[in-house]
C-alpha cells in the first residue's frame, strides 16, 4: 500500500475529510441533532443566556446532556463547582467512547492535532456514525473521515442553537418538551442498535435500571457507579458465556 497520497485527486487526508463531510451531511443524526439543539437554544433563551454564549457552548462542550445540565443548573443559581461536578459526571461516558473509537481511526503516523480534534468531536452522534462507517475507509483516511462527520454535525447543531434561541418565543411548550425528549430517545435506540455482543446488551439494561435507582437512593457519583458496576458485571457475563462454549 502506498503510504503517501498517490491516489489521484489529492491527499488521503483531504479525500477522507470530504468523504466524512458527505457522510455527516446525510446522517440520520442530523434530524435528531437539529431538533435537540433547537430545544437547547430555546431553553437557553428562556433562562436568560445570550445567543453567542449558547453557540459557544455547543462548539466547546458538544454534548447535549452536559449542556442541558449546565444551562438549567446555572440558571437555577447552583454554585459553579456543583455544576462542574454534574457536567463532568455526565461526561464520564466520553472516556470509554474515545478509547473505543480512536484505535479504529488512528495509525502510527496520525498527527496529534487531528486525533485531539476527533476526540473533541466524539459525541453519541459522531461516535455511532464513525464506528459504523470508518472501517470502510483506508486506515490513513480515517481520522480525517471522522473529523469530516464531526464538522457537519457540529455545524448543524450550532445553526440549530441559533434558530432555537430566536424562535423560543413562538415555539409551543409541548413541542420544546418533545424536542428535549429527542436526546434520551435517540441515545436509547442508538445504543441498542450498536449492541451486538451480549456484554453490550446487558450493560445497556443495567445502566437503565441502576442509574435512576442509585440517584433515588442518593448515592453520590451515580453515573460513575452505574458504569463501573453495570459494565463490569456485563463483561463478566460475557466471559462466562464464552468459557462455556
Amino acid at each position: 500500500m502506498a503510504q503517501d497520497g498517490t491516489a489521484s485527486g489529492g491527499s488521503p487526508v483531504w479525500e477522507g475529510y470530504l468523504a466524512g463531510c458527505k457522510a455527516g451531511a446525510v446522517s440520520v443524526f442530523q434530524i435528531v441533532l437539529i431538533g435537540t439543539y433547537i430545544s437547547i437554544g430555546a431553553l437557553a433563551h428562556d433562562l436568560g443566556y445570550s445567543v453567542v454564549w449558547v453557540v459557544l457552548s455547543t462548539l466547546v462542550v458538544w454534548a447535549a446532556p452536559a449542556q442541558v445540565i449546565m444551562i438549567t443548573a446555572l440558571a437555577a443559581g447552583a454554585a459553579p463547582i456543583e455544576v462542574a461536578v454534574a457536567v463532568s459526571l455526565s461526561g464520564v461516558r466520553l472516556l470509554p467512547m474515545v478509547v473505543a473509537l480512536l484505535p479504529i481511526l488512528r495509525t502510527p503516523s496520525s498527527r496529534l492535532p487531528g486525533v485531539v480534534l476527533a476526540a473533541h468531536f466524539t459525541a453519541v452522534s459522531m461516535w455511532m456514525e464513525a464506528l459504523r462507517l470508518a472501517h470502510r475507509r483506508p486506515p490513513e483516511q480515517r481520522i480525517a473521515f471522522a473529523n469530516g462527520i464531526g464538522t457537519m454535525l457540529i455545524a448543524s447543531a450550532s445553526l440549530a442553537s441559533v434558530a432555537g434561541f430566536y424562535f423560543a418565543r413562538v415555539l409551543p411548550e409541548p413541542l420544546v418538551g418533545g424536542l428535549l425528549f429527542l436526546t434520551p430517545m435517540s441515545f436509547l435506540v442508538s445504543v441498542v442498535r450498536s449492541s451486538r455482543m451480549i456484554s453490550d446488551r446487558i450493560a445497556a439494561v443495567a445502566g437503565l435500571v441502576l442509574s435512576p435507582l442509585l440517584a433515588l437512593l442518593g448515592v453520590g457519583l451515580d453515573l460513575m457507579w452505574t458504569g463501573l458496576v453495570g459494565g463490569t458485571a456485563a463483561y463478566l457475563v460475557h466471559r462466562v458465556a464464552r468459557a462455556r462454549r
Binding site: 478509547v99 473505543a100 436509547l188 437503565l208 442509574s211 435512576p212 452505574t226
Partner: peptide, 29 residues
C-alpha cells in the same frame, strides 16, 4: 476494550434513564 465498551454503554443508558426520570426544562411538565 470489551470491558471499556460495556462501561460506556452502561453510563450512556444511565444518562438516558436519568433524563427521562428526572426531566429538564419543558420536559418536566
Amino acid at each position: 476494550l470489551l470491558w471499556v465498551r460495556a462501561v460506556a454503554t452502561a453510563i450512556l443508558t444511565g444518562v438516558v434513564a436519568k433524563i427521562i426520570v428526572f426531566a429538564p426544562g419543558a420536559l418536566a411538565g
